[in-house]
Write a protein that binds this DNA or RNA. Structure first.
Lengths: 339, 339
DNA sequence: CTGTTAGCGCCTTCAC
DNA sequence: GTGAAGGCGCTAACAG
């Protein structure tokens, strides 16, 4: 019965109506009497009608589609964010196109073009690590396409950011250790060209100074988000003259490496050394009950960013001011650690 | 200079050409002389032209878009698959629309409609757990939209599946334990209405029988993919008259619960009890060096499924036969476990 | 309340 | 090798 590609014209013909009336009926326009709507709707389902969004979007120049650009979908933090984005978008009747930059500037550029070609109504993105220059984003503004950044701060005037309060997270993580009685707290830092790691580091220093502990350069160990770093850092750390009794790791991968190395070398966690690590991956939550984690609220960030973007899309006229939303990450203590 | 919404007509006007020539030039048609192409292309970039895919797709009734339906994006296995899908699709010039069913049949139904409305060229899906009835998928076939299932087998004639060899994985996991010297191996099973868990269970039984070990119903513990199950099962398991010396868990969440419970009750892993668990999440790879894992090749599945789908889309005429691709999962031993 | 008309931007016959 | 014309399916004026 129902066949390939039924259009509003087919319905109109079958009902001796005009296609515009059918269109209005299907869009629940107040300018069509209820009875007509019922008839049209019944016929439409009977004939297996499927609205063609392409045509509709073309006509309305509104696609109800948003583009999402993340460095890598399979990183748990980003997939959580996407999950939140999809949910909020779905509820609002929006479709989501997902792209991954793989941290490559060129891919990012090409993706922007693709999304423009798809005529998305807005874009949510976490800028790639390689990106230092933002010219490729100007076209979006020129076309009136809304853009909201999440997770990775991007300082372009008039654009909104949805971020995690890394300074505060670093501060809380470190203070947590201090309150547990730690006196010599090491810091495994991340790449210092990234704001998030800089801020966590600042939070660490601030907590130390607030509690009257000295900041020692020797206790700061760089790391490149590899387990190997965690192992090597731990090795050096055990060789220090003053024994360390706490570690705040700005990234969980290094924390994992550290835990593996330390435990296999007879160090008890958290009795000898307490550790707090960020959890970008669900890994941390189970790797060791002794690891206290700072959880990144991916889903919430996704929802907040999407809600903001949709607000900007719909209120495009009296353009919303750019704003920065700061989400709190939450410290989750797995075990009453330490002393 | 470049402004809002440049169309091929604008380019044509600026060049004293016809829009059709511009269109052909931009599509690199052989029916346009090279010189013209160069001029058009130059002007296009100069004016900041962006092809409108909506219009193009509408005209060609081909969107170069594929829809993906997964139960939940943030589950690591699925985000890996999506990652693979996105990569392969991107290379082939396709855009990917992601949707999550959240295991709900109604959402799945609605998503199918949305994707049809978006006129996707094909769909990749992992059917929701709630879905028992496949009528809502018939429209796809009726509209000639290609469909490939992945991970969760779906037995509808003429549709392809890309799956993991669960029987073999279950077999290998169990055999691994046997070869390590285990004599009493428990099995934490998953929901038996799902093929994958049934097959892992079968693999378990087959390994036992192959090696002359008795199958004992009492050693099979149901689980619903919750840590809690793992804990409860472990509790029961410790109370058995014959001590268990190995566990093959069909899902890693239960395995994690088990490890937490067992280690906190003084059981040494793998010395007392060796464990092999599936790793849907990266969790397992680090939770305990003693946990041997069976890794699900998400990215590879995504790539294979996409490649297959694209082949079906492009060779639509002499329709490809439905096929089933079986991917091997690989057992990763974290430590020379046991005895 | 419903019909008429026009066009969103592109591609594709068909002419020349 | 290029131009002219028409239409993909839908919606938004403008009528009546």
């Amino acid at each position: 019965m129902q066949n390939n590609k039924v259009t509003i014209h087919d319905i109109a013909k079958a009902l001796n109506l005009d296609s515009s009336t059918v269109s209005r009926a299907l869009n629940d326009s107040p300018r069509v009497i209820q009875k007509t709507k019922d008839i049209v709707l019944a016929k439409a389902t009977e004939m297996g009608y499927q609205r063609n969004h392409l045509a509709s979007s073309l006509r309305k120049s509104k696609t109800n589609t948003i583009g999402v650009i993340v460095p890598r979908i399979s990183r748990h933090f980003f997939s959580s964010v996407i999950s939140g984005i999809e949910e909020t978008a779905y509820e609002a009747g929006y479709t989501v196109i997902i792209c991954q930059s793989l941290e490559q500037f060129n891919r990012e550029k090409k993706i922007i073009n693709t999304l423009m070609g798809q005529r998305v109504d807005g874009v949510l993105m976490s800028i790639s690590m390689e990106t230092k220059d933002y010219k490729h984003l100007e076209v979006l503004k020129k076309q009136g396409i809304q853009l909201v950044f999440f997770d990775r701060h991007c300082d372009i005037p008039n654009y909104s950011n949805v971020l995690i309060d890394d300074f505060n997270s670093g501060f809380e993580a470190t203070e947590h250790l201090i309150l547990k009685g730690c006196k010599h707290i090491a810091h495994f830092s991340g790449p210092q060209n990234l704001e998030i790691y800089k801020n966590r580091f600042k939070g660490y220093k601030h907590a130390l100074s607030k509690h009257g502990l000295p900041f020692e350069e020797a206790l700061v160990f760089p790391s490149k988000l590899m387990e190997e770093d965690g192992r090597k850092n731990s090795e050096k750390l055990l060789a220090l003259p003053n024994p360390v009794d706490g570690i705040f790791s700005a990234n969980d991968v290094a924390a994992i490496g550290a835990i593996k190395y330390l435990t296999s070398n007879g160090v008890k966690i958290p009795e000898d050394i307490a550790i707090v690590g960020f959890s970008n991956e669900p890994i941390s939550t189970v790797i060791n009950p002794a690891l206290t984690t700072i959880n990144q609220p991916g889903i919430e960030i996704g929802k907040a960013a999407t809600a903001l973007l949709l607000r900007q899309i719909t209120k495009e006229n009296d353009a919303l001011d750019a704003q920065t939303i700061i989400m709190d990450s939450n410290l989750i203590e797995r075990q009453s650690s330490k002393k």
